[in-house]
């Protein structure tokens, strides 16, 4: 602490380490276990909503969420090769799901709005 200046905040910069699997990351709200800081009145693992989700939709959401979280990490760690590798893996998985999985495809090309529930009606993909 002796080398720090007065009158300015310091935040330790995160280092790439263990990450959650896709399913746990969406449940916890981050892919990084060291950034998971639950509130004492909410100790239970969230699964009521996710356990009811349709499986192909859920898989697509999990991959997209990991991509969102690692993107922000890369914004502040642009040279981190391990993060970049994970980002590329997620991106490939998203593209694969978009071609194989009807849900992934419908999520991007949407013009038949009447064919299924809207996202705010609970049709989440």
């Amino acid at each position: 602490m002796d080398n720090l200046c007065l009158a300015i905040p310091y935040i330790p910069v995160q280092k790439w380490s263990e990450i959650y699997d896709f399913a746990t990351a969406l449940e916890e709200g981050t892919v990084f276990p060291e950034l998971n800081k639950p509130f004492f009145v909410a100790p239970e693992r969230s699964n009521t909503t996710l356990s009811k989700a349709n499986v192909p939709q859920l898989l697509f959401s999990q991959v997209c969420f990991a991509l969102d979280d690692v993107l922000l990490y890369l914004d502040t760690h642009p040279g981190d090769m391990k993060a970049k590798e994970f980002y590329e893996t997620c991106l490939k998985k998203k593209k694969d799901l978009m071609s194989e999985n009807e849900c992934g495809c419908a999520c991007i090309s949407h013009y038949e709005w009447e064919q299924k529930p809207l996202v705010w009606e609970g049709g989440h993909c």
Partner: peptide, 21 residues
């Protein structure tokens, strides 16, 4: 509670990223 807990977790991640910024 499920989506609220998810959104709360994102605030902590964003705080860390702004600190790094």
């Amino acid at each position: 509670r499920d989506p609220i807990k998810f959104l709360r977790a994102r605030e902590i991640v964003h705080f860390q990223r702004f600190g790094e910024a």
